[in-house]
Simulated assay, not measured.
Amino acid sequence: MTSLLTGIIAAFRTFPLRSWLILAAVAALLTLGAWLYFAGREDERDDQADRQARVEAKASAGRETAATERTLDTTAIQARQAERDHAAEALPDSAPDERDLRRRCRQLRDAGLDPAACRGLEGPG
């Protein structure tokens, strides 16, 4: 143990005190720089996490707004469809005009049928 202590003292005496102080100052600066570097990286990670949380919150709000608008649009579309259906049901059924009857009879004849209701509607349509 004493030889180890003697060796350390001998190594210390090989360099002047000023060299040891410069070495200690450099070591302190390197330690401080490393600590600041890693602290800065940690702060950057925290900032990135905060930015990500804000973006996700904004996206979530957008998705909620879109879902609400889709629901409102679907409801409005269904209401308009029901209104059209109701209006169509309210219209009275009318008899087809002569031109429409001739067209339908021609389609039946082209299909190979000759119903009795079509006799007498031979003219051009």
Rank of each mutant, 00 (worst) to 15 (best):
L121S: 07
G120K: 08
C118E: 08
E64K: 14
A28M: 03
A76I: 05
Q107W: 09
Q48V: 12
L72T: 01
S60G: 12
G40Y: 05
A53K: 01
L17G: 09
A59Q: 11
E89L: 03
R104V: 12
G40F: 04
R99A: 14
D93Q: 08
K58L: 04
L72H: 03
D93G: 08
R63T: 12
V26C: 08
T14Q: 02
G120Y: 06
V55L: 06
A90E: 14
R84G: 00
G123P: 14
R84V: 07
A111V: 10
T14C: 01
D110V: 07
M1V: 08
L32P: 09
G123I: 08
T31E: 06
R103A: 15
L72N: 00
T14L: 02
F15S: 15
A90T: 15
V55N: 02
K58M: 06
L36E: 13
R13A: 03
E89V: 01
G62W: 10
R13Y: 01
L29G: 00
G7I: 06
F15D: 13
D73P: 01
F12W: 15
P96N: 02
G120S: 04
T68R: 15
R119Y: 07
D46V: 12
V26F: 04
Q78Y: 03
E69W: 12
P16K: 04
R18V: 00
A49H: 12
V55E: 04
I22L: 03
Y37W: 09
R103W: 15
D47P: 00
A117F: 07
P96I: 00
A59L: 15
A25V: 03
P115V: 09
A79H: 07
R102G: 01
G123V: 13
L36N: 15
L32Q: 10
R41P: 02
R99E: 14
M1G: 14
